[in-house]
Design a binder for these strands. Structure first.
Lengths: 191, 191
DNA sequence: CTTCACTATGTCAGTTCTTACATAGCTGAG
DNA sequence: CTCAGCTATGTAAGAACTGACATAGTGAAG
């Protein structure tokens, strides 16, 4: 019946399960650095919201908006909550591994090592910034660990994943920079 | 001029820079567990190969194939190599963060913790299997570390990233399973 | 006072990607 | 002998997604 909801549909439902939101707010919540689980343009979100509405998984109330259209505050329905709950424990489909930095790394042997080192230094800076941000938020969360069943549990668990991911990524960037400097200066063993 | 090559195009060029291949081989090389940097269906690869051919970045020679069509062995041209080299050091565009397991985690507070625990245990098993595979390959690579400039350098660096990624991911799955078991059995502090 | 950023919804063209279909020989298992 | 799996290329429909355009009020910075 429900003509297969795309993953983005469930991302929208997951956001709405935490708080009623406009389409715009859903997009900004998904872009929010902490728990950045799925990204989408507002146009795609509006498209999918219409589909979820047609399937009866969300509803909305209107309020005066800034633009020519009225603002629509969406909320998840009981049916939507059921669909989301059922989807959560289904095994995730194998994800299409797509990582531009790893691809560039794969072809790194062809390029200029100085320019490459610069690129990895920039990437490292980004990861370190995010890591610092996540660690600060984590310190706050640790003061008052949310129990399973609390909406904050999901945020905390996603944050934890982001935290260790950034750590792994920063470590790898440092390792790459080290490898590149060794190839430029083979005599020095330490950087 | 070159009507913007998609990222998959550069992935194809990166594979061809290492060895001449048929479209089918390119797909299987990209699916290869070690250095799994970009995935694509063969149909998409054939489409993009035609585009790269039109842009003069690849060429091919034919050989008798198993099916009704002749087999086409593609190779990268000098122009293709130049384009790839230039692309490698360009800063990567911010990637669309899309992770189904993290999304499920974000909505985990709504679901059955026992079913969730089962799901994470399955995910953990997958990550541990891959990790073991990567570690075995890494042990081989460490015997004879490729220098920068050798095609094997890219493979090694991508493998290193995959290795630490799987480690981070497995750790996180274990942490999640622990969190879930604590919520079911709050008295036990150790698993 | 102007300009920029933020809030907010929507359309539309075009790109990328997936999935299914179609063909066909070779090899190895049962 | 049959059937599955691997090699190999291709088409085509449709789904998913991006990015630009369009509109418009509020508030802050300069």
């Amino acid at each position: 019946m429900s003509s297969t909801i795309p993953t983005l549909g469930f991302a929208i439902l997951a956001v709405l399960a935490q708080a009623d939101s406009t389409g715009y707010e859903i997009a900004s919540r998904m872009r929010h650095p902490v728990s950045r689980f799925w990204t989408a343009s507002h146009s795609q979100i509006h498209t999918d919201l219409r589909r979820l509405l047609a399937a009866g998984l969300v509803g909305y109330t209107t309020a005066p908006g800034p633009g020519p259209q009225e603002k629509k505050i969406y909320s998840i329905t009981g049916e939507g909550l059921d669909a989301l709950r059922a989807w959560v424990t289904e095994p995730p489909r194998p994800q299409p591994e797509r990582d531009e930095l790893v691809l560039k790394t794969y072809a790194a042997w062809l390029a200029d090592p100085v320019a490459l080192s610069e690129m990895f230094r920039t990437a490292l800076r980004h990861h370190e910034e995010r890591l610092a941000e996540y660690e600060a938020t984590w310190a706050d969360v640790e003061q008052d660990m949310p129990a399973f069943g609390s909406p904050r549990f999901g945020n905390m668990a996603a944050l934890r994943c982001g935290l260790t991911y950034e750590r792994h990524r920063a470590d790898w960037c440092r390792w790459m920079i080290d490898q590149l400097s060794r190839s430029l200066n083979p005599s020095c063993e330490a950087s």
